[in-house]
Amino acid sequence: MSPNRTRLLFVALVVAQLFLLAGQARDPRGASSLLEGAFLRALSPLGRLVAAGGETVGGAREALRGRAALEAENRSLRAVVRELRRERLRLAGLALEAEELARGAGIEAASGLELRAARVVYLDRRSDLRTLVLEVGARGARRDQPVVAETGLVGRVIETAGRYAKVQLVTDRAAAVAVQLEAARRQGVLHGAGPGRLEVDYVPRQVEVAVGDRVVTAGVDGVYPRGLAVGVVASVEPGNEMFHRVEVEPAVDLANLSLVYLLEAAVPPAALTRGAGDAPP
């Protein structure tokens, strides 16, 4: 095409467009509207494509971000789980200990005795001279100090060594405890009679003793305070012409001890304290 024709074509095209623009001002729904609609129809699918692609990319990016976040969260949660497992193990031990302490506190509140917890570190099961080794803490222990568990009497301290103390169990054949048959209100002397067995001596035959009667400390031997549960009567047989042969089942499962209590001081009975105040000079 010659340059002049090209120039003419250009001028014509410009003039036509100017008319188009001017006509659009008068009639917005004219030819320009049709053209605009045609271009919009042609271009809109591309826009939809971009929008769909953008959503896909955005979704993938969100998914990747979410996956990374989930992995990080998973790692941190695994660490938390590990920590919680460790904590659970620790708390389980503490809970057991707290339960035992609570039972001890119950005893303390009920009996008015001052208790100090001690952990059993060793139990001699091999001989009839049953002994425990306790970890008693920095305060130590003293000889003949009574040792109890949450259900009753365990024994007394026979040896101390700094933070540790050795305890003679009531089931020891050499042990002797002044006890009282609670129902019969008769006293006797309790001693070990072999593994896990106890016997009470010096209970007269004229005293009625029944199986299941509670046996408690009498509080007259200078070692154990009065009223500590020792066990229950398991059997009663005629021993000789004067005394019963009373077998007692221990109140404490001595083979299964982990925490015991040292009796710090025997609290005098309230009646005795009141009586001392009322006593004449």
């Binding site: 250009f10 095209l13 100017l18 623009l21 659009q24 001002a25 605009e36 271009f39």
Partner: peptide
């Protein structure tokens, strides 16, 4: 220009005329 006009808020044909020139 018309493609740009279809996507712009201006009257249709402004970009067409400008881009033609």
């Amino acid at each position: 220009g018309w493609a740009a006009d279809a996507l712009s808020g201006l009257p249709f044909g402004l970009h067409g005329l400008a881009d033609t020139m």
